[in-house]
Amino acid sequence: MTFDDFLQAFFSWEILEQAWPILWAGFLNTLVLSAVVVPLGFIGGVILALLSTLRSRWVRWPLIAWVDLFRSLPPLVLLVFVYAGLPFAGLEVSPLTAVAIGFFLNTGAYYGEILRAGIESVPHGQTEAARSTGLTALQALGHVVLPQAVRNVLPDLISNTLEVVKLTSIASVVALPELLFQARQAQSVTYNATPIMAAAVIYFVLLWPVVRLLSRLENRQMAGRR
């Protein structure tokens, strides 16, 4: 393979121009998908974290089982099960619904564990002070504990969000036309690797600023813990 062949296979401007509309549509779909699954997973996480503050064993054990299950299952397996398995039970779901359900279950479990750690990092005296002024348990959680909890685990939350956005690429297996799926389409039509290369660059450009931000936050937290 000559150098020119290499350039032609991975960095062809001509191919990129042809593939760009398809890639762009895929990029927009990836953004929309992220805008759906990140809040959905986060809400799932908040629900799990709130449940974990209840002391009752009737909540505790099912909760542990739930979180363990969805942290153990590979997200790809979960997604394929929801999309290709549930129809055998008479439950047909669209690709987007399947992805939404899968992410709600999988990333919800991760966000939930992070938020639980955050809640546990807030001293109990904070809740007592809030309750002593007449705030209800829920108000104390919402106004006093959760804001501090989120701040304490912000780097972990961002890190998980980064993983979730990257993980949206598995939606390609259920033919949801997000960035990776579109790049594969363009690659098979053009018989050239440039679209895949372009997709990788787009992911990088999208996520690298978040990675930088995360590093800065982590460094600042380390400095704060001196």
């Binding site: 007592e128 002070a129 809030a130 002593s132 002024t133 007449g134 209800t136 006093v144 804001p147 501090q148």
Partner: peptide
Amino acid sequence: INKARQRIGMVFQSFNLYPH
């Protein structure tokens, strides 16, 4: 109890101010 607690102020050893 939340209503009643407004009539009973409490001050703690470790202050327990909300840092945020």
